[in-house]
Design a protein around this nucleic acid. Structure first.
Lengths: 221, 221
DNA sequence: TTTCAGGGGTGTAAAATTACACCCTTTGAG
DNA sequence: CTCAAAGGGTGTAATTTTACACCCCTGAAA
């Protein structure tokens, strides 16, 4: 059980060794295929879902695939904000890639929060940072034009994957939904980036050639 | 000191009586005039600012008065999210009306978080709810057209003030900044609402006549 | 009293974005 | 092999929003 990798989540690391061992003993790992629903909006929070591997998309509504909240990469607890507010998921999470999710018992987790002050302070810090990132994501996208928003998303992938060459887990319509613009705007801006030599792209394969210029477009928009 | 009203903040109420008394003994009340800067972006968090009375606007940048984050009404702790993440304010807060702010010592507050489990759990719940409201605000505004956004803002004021007739602490340009549209869009939509008999408005005085229709416009947009 | 700045207000032009129509290529099921 | 579906891609029209020009009114300073 100790082989389960939790080192990419800052607040789990704040647990004492024996607590972490015990918590992970009660946890189980689950696999999701790309496209599967990991969390359904409206359901109650019985467990915490730590995304160990893969990328998920948070959605306001599965039906109308209009409003995408943001993307989560490995190391994040999915919908952690809902766990201690309404205790109901306020959005759905869909796997964009094949994912490995660690299911952690909510009550066990809460018990440690009450028991271990170091842990609860680390958790407060963790959710504050998560919410900051959440807000940043939204501020950035809503204040940008279509080119800036696309540049921002590409930069986020580059940062999260840690490499300038990667494969997007999204098709063009998906990208459009995530950044909140039309598919055509995405295509035209991507074509523009290609013509300007800022990125190379064939289908979902993307290589960022001029990272600083892309960041400029992202910040300027 | 016990006369200080803190009952409108849920997490302070979770303190034991003697703790609350002690916390408030070390706190002081401060008045801000409309237009004054309450919190400056980039400064470190040394105290928590509990807004006892009035309305403040959270801004990404004081200089370029473009991006407004959201409005805070009485009972909220200003920038509570920053207190336990970077410990630096990531945005400024400007008083829209005359305000009364209770300055609470950050270290004293943090000491109670570590000491009192009930309080720390209430605080986790509080910041989760605040962030949910933050996110809601942004989701709603960014996905709406100009009419929907204006309707949303008017509904927020109605809700926060608890009455359908009120005086806006914002002129038309301010409204435009807060909802992220142009001044002209605000004026035209307001004129439309007036013509349709949804609101009455002369200058900053607003009376909401058809609350449910306004809510529809807010939700539809 | 005059003047002028600030806010409220409105029509029209300009810009950005979306929607539609359509084409090409790949791929996998029959 | 064939054909249909899905994704990538592009031009053009329609829509939305912004920007500009300008008007009126009020209130405070000269």
């Amino acid at each position: 059980m100790n082989s389960i990798n939790t080192s990419n989540n800052t607040c789990i690391r704040a647990l004492r060794d024996e607590e972490r061992t015990e918590l992970l003993a009660s946890a189980r790992s689950l696999n999701f295929k790309a496209g599967e629903l990991v969390v359904k909006k409206g359901t109650s929070v019985n467990d915490l879902y730590l995304l160990q591997k893969g990328t998920v998309e948070l959605l306001m509504d599965e039906q109308r695939p209009r409003q995408s909240l943001m993307l989560l990469f490995q190391g994040e607890i999915i919908g952690v904000n809902c766990a201690y507010s309404t205790m109901n998921y306020r959005f759905s999470a869909r796997a964009l890639t094949d994912c490995v999710v660690l299911i952690i018992n909510y009550h066990t987790f809460s018990a440690y929060l009450k028991q271990n002050t170091e842990f609860s302070m680390a958790f407060i810090r963790y959710i504050s940072l998560v919410n900051e990132r959440f807000l940043d994501w939204h501020m950035k996208l809503s204040q940008k034009n279509s080119a800036g928003a696309l540049a921002f998303l590409l930069c986020e992938f580059e940062k999260s994957y840690g490499q300038s060459s990667f494969e997007l887990p999204l098709n063009r319509s998906d990208i459009a939904r995530v950044i909140g613009f039309s598919k055509e705007s995405v295509l035209k801006n991507l074509a523009h980036f290609r013509n300007e030599g800022i990125v190379e792209s064939t289908g979902k394969k993307v290589k960022i050639l001029d990272s600083s210029r892309l960041l400029d477009i992202s910040n300027y928009g």
